[in-house]
Amino acid sequence: MNLDQAPSATADWPDHIFDLLKAYNVRQVALVPDAGHSRLIKRCLADNAMRVVTLTTEEEGVAMMAGAWLGGSRAVLLMQSSGVGNCINMLSLATLHRTPMPMLVTMRGDFGEFNPAQVPMGQATRTVLEAMGTLVNRADTPGDIAANVEATLKFAFNTYRATATLIGQRVIGAKTFGKD
């Protein structure tokens, strides 16, 4: 049984995100997999100039972005909304040191969720990020994603802070295990 939903194979917004990561010279891609990011992850893995680091927990990625920036590399963190909760204290690094930390978050516990366990963190995702000083953008239609992600990358790298794009579950879809 597949608890998470991947975007349809024909959706091209993951490719637009990949093109933006290339355009903004992102070299380190930290992630805990989410089905919503599966196509983007594949694209990143296939790119020789990108180092994909699969983490055991999302806060590792926050620390890794700090290290990447110390060494002059741009990094990004891909995760699902539940992973945001794992990052809270580590995000203090971005505030203390003024470190660019763009995060691309696929939402769960959001539009049409089936799994009750995803709801508490999904509903708290924006609040938690904002409480830790992250600038949060949200995209709820496929056409909105590229511009939104570009704003998130620009704002992080040009103004030195943590930023996030939340990709709404309305875009990704909610799996209902045949119980709609």
Binding site: A66, A68, G71
Partner: peptide, 11 residues
């Protein structure tokens, strides 16, 4: 340790 990893990969 993970700050070290990000830096080590970058440099």
């Amino acid at each position: 340790a993970m700050i070290g990893l990000g830096l080590a990969i970058a440099q």
